[in-house]
Amino acid sequence: MDIGGDHPKLGVQALTVGYGKRAVQQDLSFEVKPGSIFAIMGGSGCGKSTVLKALIGLLRPSAGTICVNGEDYWAGSEQHRADLGRRFGVLFQSGALWSSMSVAENVALPLRMFTPLDNASIDALVRLKLSLVGLPSDGARMPAELSGGMRKRAGLARALSLDPEILFFDEPSAGLDPGSAARLDDLILELRDGFNTTVVLVSHELPSLFTICDDGVFLDAETRTAIAHGSPKAMRDDCKHPVVHAFMNREGSRGSNQTKGDADGSG
């Protein structure tokens, strides 16, 4: 996977996002380094998902710039945005699989639309992606027949279909049991290491954040901007800001002990 020169993979400058005149988050700046797993954190309702929408092209920011490999994402034409967007893979919160297609067709559709590959090659890629996420024999099933965790995995396989440079996750472990959530975390780490993908995830699941993320930004609902930067672990241990401290340590002792154990076990 190519790494875009000296530029950060994703650079956000003075970003303001909102609906109509109401700003949900303002004056946000952060950089996502290539190959890192970057967390957008914050309590419920602080605007994490809205920021994500701006990053993946679903919501035009009211101000500020978002640069992908140094190119301004929102400055160009819609076509230019679509071209850049093809380097993204997005896993939506509930998987967002297209319900009228089988799982395999879900993964195959982006390949059919945007690559000149023949059917045999597409089949091989679909098999690979489904196997990587642990659904090797579920390709023929319809999304409605899958459990929540399987839908997420299938959604991840679809997000991976075009070999994205940046993978976005909206609440990856929401609605999963702790075991499945931990396995999904491991999978995210393995896929990042394997494909050298950059990962941006929105989450407030402390165990996941501590286990997999090596950088991040903390959004505050009150001041509507970023109040802390750095890895979740560093925020937990060193950040003096009362809001961040309370968030990171609320279920503190138990959550962090368990994560440390997980991290040791997997590493």
């Binding site: 089949d123 098999r127 196997s131 990587l132 090797p136 999978l187 896929l191």
Partner: peptide, 9 residues
């Protein structure tokens, strides 16, 4: 991560 056998869809 991938199983040993190539499983057809």
């Amino acid at each position: 991560l991938a199983p040993v056998d190539v499983v057809p869809v």
